[in-house]
């Protein structure tokens, strides 16, 4: 069970939350000048990294507010949560070195 630090409510269990996918996606525009390829990229193509991912979360069974998080897709560790509209705080070198070492997943 993940413990997720809602920036409004504090740490809560993962069942209270929904993930809203990749964050910081900018809608292209003006719409008359956007090509089909750019619309496709905006609507369907995603970063999908193996490592840190910046994504939106929704505290569905709590304050019902949206926020951003930087989370590792292998360890599931939340490095930081931050408010919608804010830039993602950069990783703190010292804090990162204190993070527990979690073995990587097996091979696919």
């Amino acid at each position: 069970m993940l413990l997720i630090d809602c920036p409004f409510c504090g740490p809560r269990a993962e069942i209270e939350f929904r993930c809203g996918g990749e964050s910081h996606i900018q809608r292209p525009g003006p719409h008359t000048q956007v090509s089909d390829a750019e619309w496709a990229d905006y609507l369907f193509f995603r970063e999908n990294p193996k490592g840190e991912h910046r994504e939106r979360w929704f505290h569905a069974a709590g304050c019902r507010r949206w926020f951003n998080a930087a989370r590792d897709t292998v360890t599931h560790r939340f490095r930081v949560t931050y408010k919608m509209g804010d830039a993602c705080p950069e990783a703190d070198e010292n804090a990162a070195s204190e993070a527990p070492v979690v073995p990587q997943g097996g091979v696919v």
């Binding site: 990294p49 897709t73 599931h76 997943g105 097996g106």
Partner: peptide, 8 residues
Amino acid sequence: LYLSYAQR
């Protein structure tokens, strides 16, 4: 329903 490469 969140991105994962963790195989768990």
